[in-house]
């Protein structure tokens, strides 16, 4: 039987009196690649924060490898959503990635082992030449890759990404999902994403989050499923009307 990496049983959570997640059940097997999808405000990021132990559930039980997340923080790598650069903090790409290395040498400088680990992680995401650059001098996409390297550098058993491709160009998105897909088996990967088409090529399971969670092992994303997840589009698109009007316009010109 496959070992369960993440398990949630009847988990509910909310902010002040608003319930965001309601009796959620979810089991993610070890070594699989799962995508969490759903509309904005559906509770995806909240679900991740509960798994990471950053939030306490109102009710229910959350286990990571059979233990509370806080007890095994070293086994989880995390890339948060929308990390804003602190413009006042001088920080190199190397230092940013080194944050993910556990039990570091004290003081201002870094052990040679840390340097090797960081270099290896940077090579994995293809930005090893940027190690000494300031984070203020790199693009949004390169910054995102550095955050992925930071998550990888601690050699975690579970990788959790909250919209990792927010600032990445289309080619970069494909590269990133290829990288995440290659990690499958070696570690459990959970990604919150709206890049359904790219993600669907690599995933083992899909969890649709909107107050509750529905799980699917279907890789194909039908338009019917998407309508159910994001709601049906009912208003007529201006662009649709425009395209229908074009032939009429040309016909009138010929006359």
């Amino acid at each position: 039987m496959q070992k369960i990496a993440i398990s949630l049983k009847n988990v509910s959570f909310g902010y002040s009196k608003t319930r965001v997640l309601d009796r959620v059940n979810l089991s993610i097997p070890q070594g699989e690649f799962w995508a969490l999808i759903g509309p904005n405000g559906g509770g995806k990021t909240t679900l991740l924060k509960l798994i990471l132990g950053l939030l306490k559930p109102w009710e229910g039980e959350i286990k990571v490898f059979g233990k509370p997340a806080k007890e095994i923080a070293t086994k989880i790598g995390y890339v948060p959503q929308q990390v804003r650069k602190n413009m006042l903090l001088p920080l190199t790409v190397f230092e940013l990635v080194s944050m993910g290395v556990r039990s570091q040498k004290r003081g201002f400088f870094y052990a040679s082992k840390t340097k090797e680990q960081v270099q290896e992680a940077l090579e994995k995401v293809g930005i090893s030449s940027l190690a000494s650059k300031s984070i203020l001098d790199i693009s949004g996409g390169q910054f995102q890759r550095a955050l992925v390297a930071r998550a990888l550098v601690g050699k975690p058993e579970i990788l959790i990404f909250d919209e990792p491709t927010a600032n990445v160009d289309p080619e970069g998105k494909v590269c990133l999902y290829e990288l995440l897909s290659s990690l499958k088996g070696e570690m459990t990967v959970v990604v919150v994403t709206h890049d359904l088409v790219i993600a669907s090529a690599s995933i083992d399971g899909l969890a649709v989050v909107n107050r509750q969670v529905r799980v699917s092992r279907e890789k194909e994303l039908s338009s019917q499923l998407l309508s159910l997840i994001y709601g049906k589009h009912t208003h007529a698109c201006a662009v649709d009307g425009f395209i229908q009007e074009i032939p009429k316009y040309f016909a009138s010109k010929v006359k």
């Binding site: 990471l52 132990g53 950053l54 923080a73 989880i76 995390y78 948060p80 990390v83 602190n86 903090l89 920080l91 940013l96 944050m99 993910g100 556990r102």
Partner: peptide
């Protein structure tokens, strides 16, 4: 840099 990420560590 990121206090929330620091908590996860």
């Amino acid at each position: 840099f990121d206090s929330e990420y620091a908590k996860t560590l």
